[in-house]
Every structure is written in C-alpha cells, then in structure tokens.
C-alpha cells in the first residue's frame, strides 16, 4: 500500500511537471514569435548575401519549415514534432537542435557537477564546523567569508580570476579548449577557474545553510540523549545532528540549483567561452535561432521541475514524519 501511494504520487507530479513544461514551452514560443524580428530574417539575409534570389528561396524555406503557416499551426506542428523527438532545426549552426544539444550538454554538466561537488563538500564541512564552534573565531571568519562569497558577482569573479591567474601569472589559458579530451587532467585543469567562479557563491551559500540548519538541531534535546548514551562527539554531530539538519538543507540546495546555479553557469560559460548549453543558447539568441532558444529554455525548465520532484521524493524518504503521515 505504501508503494502504490508513492507511485501514484510520482505519476501525479510527473503529469503536473509535463503540464507546466508545456506552459513554459508555449510562453517561450509566443515570446519568440511576437518579437520585432522574424526568426527567418537573418537566415534569408544570409542566403541573399550569397547572391541567391531571396524571393525564390523564401518560398522554399517557408515551405520547408512551415513558416508560411499561421502561428497556431506552426505551434501545433512544433509540439507534434517535439513529441516525436524532433526538436527543430538550428539555422545558425545548420544542424538539428537535438544534435546540437547532444554534443554540448556535457560541457554544462561537467561544470555544474564539479562545482556542486567542490561547493557541497567544502561548504557543508565548514558549515558543520562553524555551527559546532558557534561564536568562536573560526565561526566569525567563516561567516564573514560566506558573506563575501554570497555578495561577489560570479561573472566579475571569473573576469578577475582570468586577469590574475591567466593574464598576469599565465597559469591558465584564457579560453576553454574544446579539443582536449573530456576525461583528462588537462581538461580538469582548465576547469579549475570556471569551477571556482561558479562554486564560490554556492560554497558560501551552503556554508550558511549548513550552519543554520546544524544550529537549529544542535540545541534539540535528542542531542543530549545521544551524548548520555556515551556516543563520541563525532557520532553525535555527524549522525544524530546532521541527519536531522540535512532535511532542510536538501530542499534549499536543490532550490538553489534551479534558481541560482543555472543562471550562474550560464554566465560562467560566457565568461570562459565554455560551449555548454548556456553559451549555445546565448549565441542562438543573438543569431535569432529561435528553435535552439526554445529548446534550451524548455530543457532548463524541465530540469528544474525534475529537481523539485526528486527533492520532494528524497525528502519523503529522509523524513519519517512525512513518510508515514
């Protein structure tokens, strides 16, 4: 009975996610279409520049992409194709959108993954230490630095890191080299600055969240019980307190992932020229490549929805009070 309850819950949430994703898709689609410039303009201008008769190709292009149809027909068409796995055609790169995304998602993924690991481990450890030694000098220093980390705009931090370590000291290349194999030390090395850029704000945030979540639970009575059992302090903090503190922590960290980290990764990719989805979408906007823009916005929104769903399920698993009520 417990199992079916969870399954129904997940199915309901998934349906909800699909509906919202559809809403977002519609909004994005409409936004792109009501813009002052027609998406095909640049493409046509390019063709015309190559000496082809614009009037002639217009018919061909419109027929091929269905741009001659009214907007609702195009919209239905787009959704129909999407359901069949066809994400449209990227004008600016001359390849299917799905292929573009398939080749580039890994760059965003590695950046976000490495930054999360870096920020998560260090931030949570500092936060725990800071809470256990509340009002100590270490705590004050950690709190002060977390303020700085939260306040520093990450794109500026990226520029400063480039200025210092790439331009002045020449330790790193100023631009991301895509020719390096993904799983190589050289690739890892060139990701150091981007990961610091994206990770600093996350690190500072995690430190603060962990500290306050730990402080909330450190004063609870079960901590005293755990000590009265004769447990070593390490177990009291690491098991009894942390296991309770992790509940609010997961929610806020996951929420950050959707709202702050995606935006931060977008800017970090632009600063360092990393060809991830953020950079692709950024380029596509300036190239009026609407199919790419809609696709990437949709992917980001869907990811956020999935993250929310996973958070809720994890939470249900970690908090017995929710699981059995």
């Amino acid at each position: 009975m417990k199992k079916t309850w969870l399954r129904d819950y997940i199915i309901r949430r998934l349906l909800y996610a699909i509906i919202i994703a559809w809403g977002i898709l519609t909004v994005t689609f409409v936004l792109v279409r009501i813009g002052p410039t027609s998406p095909a303009d640049k493409y046509l201008a390019n063709l015309a520049a190559r000496g082809q008769d614009a009037a002639q190709v217009i018919a061909a292009v419109e027929a091929r992409y269905g741009l001659d149809q009214p907007i609702y027909a195009q919209y239905l068409n787009y959704i129909g194709n999407l359901v069949q796995g066809d994400w449209g055609w990227s004008f600016s790169t001359s390849m299917p959108v799905i292929e573009l995304i398939q080749t580039h998602w890994i760059y965003s993924f590695q950046l976000i993954l490495l930054s999360s690991i870096f920020a998560g481990i260090i931030g949570i450890l500092i936060g725990i230490y800071s809470a256990v030694r509340q009002y100590s000098r270490t705590d004050y220093i950690a709190t002060f630095f977390s303020f700085i980390g939260i306040s520093i705009p990450n794109f500026w931090l990226g520029v400063m890191l480039i200025l210092l370590f790439a331009v002045q000291f020449g330790l790193f290349k100023t631009y991301y080299d895509t020719s390096l194999p993904l799983f190589s030390l050289a690739n890892l090395k060139q990701l150091i600055l981007p990961v610091i850029t994206l990770g600093t704000g996350m690190l500072a945030g995690y430190t603060r969240y962990t500290r306050s979540a730990m402080l909330d639970n450190l004063r609870k009575e079960f901590v005293r019980t755990a000590r009265a059992k004769g447990l070593p302090e390490r177990t009291v903090i690491g098991k009894h307190v942390f296991r309770n503190a992790i509940l609010p922590l997961i929610t806020i960290i996951m929420f950050d992932l959707g709202s702050i980290v995606f935006g931060g990764a977008y800017l970090t990719e632009i600063v360092f020229g990393i060809p991830g989805l953020g950079r692709i979408s950024f380029n596509a906007i300036f190239a009026d490549d609407y199919a790419v823009v809609v696709a990437i916005t949709l992917i980001a929104a869907f990811l956020i929805l999935m993250i929310n769903l996973i958070t809720d399920i994890t939470y249900t698993y970690l908090d017995p009070r929710i699981r059995y009520d």
Partner: peptide, 21 residues
C-alpha cells in the same frame, strides 16, 4: 560510563528521541 554504567532518562521522550531513527 555514560549509558553503560550511569544511564539517564529525560523528561520529554518526544524531543529526547531522535525523530529520524
């Protein structure tokens, strides 16, 4: 000594027991 030789019971078991275990 704690727990093994001298054990203690607290006033409010609701908050003295860890809710997640």
């Amino acid at each position: 000594i704690r727990g093994r030789e001298i054990a203690m019971i607290f006033q409010d078991a609701q908050s003295a027991l860890n809710p997640v275990f």
